[in-house]
């Protein structure tokens, strides 16, 4: 039983770390999205510059921001997330 508890603790520690990574990612995502949208987008519309036909604020905030998040999630999951078993080793309940 103590052995099992220890194993659970290890997995929960890992899970806690991954949850913090999730919070970090969402904060980064928000700041990037907000910064470009309102940083560049607050200028008068006549002064907007355009990238690939889209206003620069929109391109950086919505297009580049999303692509960056996809890449970040992929890299972080591949390098920091560990595979762990979920089962608590006991027989299935038959209902």
């Amino acid at each position: 039983m103590a052995e099992q508890e220890k194993k659970l603790d290890m997995r929960f520690k890992l899970a806690h770390r991954e949850a913090w990574i999730g919070i970090g990612l969402v904060l980064f995502n928000f700041i990037w999205w907000f910064g470009f949208a309102y940083g560049l987008g607050s200028a008068p519309v006549e002064e907007y510059s355009y990238i690939l036909g889209m206003p620069a604020w929109f391109f950086y905030s919505c297009v580049a921001g999303s692509i960056l998040m996809m890449v970040l999630v992929a890299v972080i999951v591949k390098s920091f997330f560990k595979e762990v078993p979920f089962e608590v080793e006991e027989e299935e309940e038959k209902v």
Binding site: R11, E18, G22, L25, V73, F86
Partner: peptide, 27 residues
């Protein structure tokens, strides 16, 4: 569109927050 992009977070946030601990506890 900018407003709708706040939903990108759902793609990773739910699974990262509930994540492995929820899966283990649920079992």
């Amino acid at each position: 569109v900018l407003l709708a992009m706040s939903q990108v977070a759902t793609g990773y946030f739910v699974l990262m927050i509930l994540g492995k601990k929820f899966a283990i506890k649920a079992r």
